[in-house]
């Protein structure tokens, strides 16, 4: 009886080890995505004053965040590997000092099949399928749950991005005008494709950086910047500031 058992165990162990010997290392690799926020190229620090090119004004940001969804890598055959469903990139609690702002927020995506990839795609906001769900459908702690405070009933939509702070509108050092731009609504979901060639190797972690220049979110196509004093809030779908911000995400991002 005992001998049979030992024999059986030996067999199991042998089969296991022989299996392992056959392949040449892990078949999946990982990506470590670091998201950063900057203002005109400088690391964005919550509560720090930044000059804004309208009427000598200056801005302090207290809440800058966006939903990052449907992140995927696309290989040379055009086949996409999905990396996440939805995550929240929230700089308001991380970018509280220079060191933390420089470090950024890191997400790790594992289980990516080895191979050559040609594009990296990110969604800003959530697509219409996810946008039909409700916060109460998600467990606490999820980026779309009630506690995440990102649903706006009046739009039937999650809030895709938030850009909030205080403005000094005439350069006198008094930051007394609150501004708040929330975006959302099905039509405003944006997918951005970065041409990016990389090789994922089994067991290796490929670093990737996605930097958002918050000043660029407010940059208009006529070269001017959004007049915060004139329009300090955007909370209803279709407001021009919302469209501006969502359309600007693409060029406000840089990827390395």
């Amino acid at each position: 009886m005992r001998l049979t058992l030992i024999g059986f165990l030996a067999l199991v162990l042998f089969t296991g080890s022989s299996c392992e010997k056959k392949d040449d290392g892990p078949i999946n690799g990982s990506i470590e995505l670091t998201c950063k926020a900057t203002f005109d190229g400088e690391d964005l620090i919550i509560g720090k004053a930044y000059p804004y090119p309208v009427n000598f004004s200056a801005l302090k940001f207290y809440l800058v965040d966006y939903l990052l969804s449907n992140v995927r890598l696309v290989n040379s055959q055009g086949v996409a590997v999905s990396l996440n469903e939805v995550d929240i990139v929230d700089f308001s609690t991380t970018n509280t000092d220079a060191a933390k702002a420089a470090a950024g927020i890191t997400f790790r995506f594992d289980g990516i099949p080895n191979g050559d990839y040609q594009a990296f795609v990110v969604g800003i906001g959530v697509d219409t399928i996810i946008n039909r769900t409700k916060p109460q459908d998600y467990p606490s702690g999820h980026p779309l749950s009630i506690g995440a405070n990102r649903y706006w009933d009046a739009w039937d939509s999650f809030i895709f991005t938030k850009t909030q702070g205080l403005a000094d509108v005439n350069g006198n050092g008094v930051f007394s005008l609150p501004f708040s731009y929330h975006t959302g609504g099905d039509g405003l979901y944006r997918e951005i494709t970065f041409q990016y060639t990389t090789q994922i190797k089994g067991g290796q972690v490929t670093p990737l950086r996605l930097e958002l220049d918050v000043r660029e979110l407010l940059h208009q196509s006529d070269g001017n910047f959004w007049n915060i004093e004139a329009e300090p809030n955007a909370h209803s779908p279709g407001e021009p500031a919302m469209l501006l911000i969502m359309d600007n995400y693409e060029h406000a991002f840089s990827m390395f």
Binding site: P135, G147, N149, Y151, W152, D153, A154, H235, S236
Partner: peptide, 16 residues
């Protein structure tokens, strides 16, 4: 917009 729903939203009438 009285803005209340931003902080006291959802069926719980708060997002906590």
């Amino acid at each position: 917009d009285a803005e209340c729903g931003h902080c006291h939203g959802s069926a719980l009438l708060t997002t906590n």
